[in-house]
Structures are given as structure tokens and as C-alpha cells.
Amino acid sequence: MALAGLFLITFLVVHLAINLLLLSNDDGAAFKVAVEFMTTNPLVKIMEIFLMGGFAIHIVIGVFIQIQNWLARPVRYKVAGYSHLSFFSKYMIHTGAIIFIFLCIHFTNFYFVKLGLVSPPAGVEKEDFYQMANSLFADRFYAVLYVVLMIFLGFHLHHAFQSAFQTLGLNHTKYTPFIKAAGTIYSVVVPLGFASIPLFFIFTK
């Protein structure tokens, strides 16, 4: 769970780095080069399998653990939840479910199109992710939805980052405060980076 989560956390950085190329003012030239590399490089293709595995493991174990946790308290409390605890940690399965729904939409829009399972929007090439992103964000509703979902991703990541280290037993009086701070920064910066792209499209196009 924690290892798969940390793997996905590193993946998000790569994904964001490429997405941010959409912001450069060159009609997507840089982005297209990056997409070309990511779709053709054999090493990336191997990593793609690991990535899907990472998602599958994280989701399956997450749901399995959650079910076990619900079963561990068959009779609920009448008055519950007044203990002090980290806010975001309470809603990991919920934010996770929201992210999963987003992932399904995201796959239908991009990944499945690339694989040829879903036909691309009219007038757009199968591998032209730049045009796909353009046409999707042209829809204001989709762009706003994307931003909102990124907020939930931030909630999920805020607990996830430091929690993964705790689960792996990587706890240290010197470094744990640093890990917690890094997690907070990560959970703000990365979703904000992703959200900046639809916001850029909303305000400039």
C-alpha cells in the first residue's frame, strides 16, 4: 500500500513535468516532443506496466483494507469521532474513490484513445494529446471539474505522503518533521501544478 503509493507519488511528478509543457507558448511543440518520447520509448513502455500494476495494487489493497477496517467495528458508536486526529486521514477511502472516478474519466479521454479502445474526438489524431487536452479544456465545465478534482487529490496526498513513511517504519526525530513538511508542500504544489493548466486555458483561451 505504502510502497505502491510512494511509487504513484513519484509518477505524479513526472506526469506533472510533462503536463506543464502545455503552458509554454509554442502551440504545444515541446509537449508533443515529450508525448512522442513517452509513447515510443521502450523503457517507458515497461514502466507503463509497472505503473498500471502500482495503481492496481494500491487500489485493490486499499479497498481490501478498508473493508477489513469496517468489519473490525460491527456495531458503530452513537456519538463518535471527537478524538483529535488528522482531518484528511479520515477520508482517504472517499478521496481515493473520487480520484478513482477521475482516473476512469482520464483514461477514457487519453489512455484508451491511445490504445485505440476509444475513438478520439472528431478531427483529432489518435496520438495528438495536445489537441485532446485543448478540446477538453475548451469545455468550461470539464475544466472546472478538473480543478475541483485536483483539490481532492491534494487532500489525499496530504495524508498519504507522511503516512507512507510511517507505515514503512521510516520515522526519525530529525527527519520526520522534514518529511511532514515536504508532504504538505508536495500536496499543495503538485495538484496546484495540474490545476494551473485548465486555469490557464480558462483565462487565456
Binding site: 483529535h84 488528522s86 486521514s89 503516512s163 507505515t167
Partner: peptide
């Protein structure tokens, strides 16, 4: 049949002996 730890920190907040999640 105990549940799994999701690092919420509620236990250490309620522990009468203030045992840390460290």
C-alpha cells in the same frame, strides 16, 4: 479481527499514558 492502521493518530491523542505513534 482488529482493523488496520491508517496513521490517523487518534490512538495517541486518546491514550491515557500518552504513548506516541513513533
Amino acid at each position: 479481527g482488529f482493523g488496520n492502521c491508517t496513521n490517523t493518530g487518534a490512538c495517541e491523542a486518546e491514550c491515557p499514558k500518552e504513548i506516541s505513534i513513533d
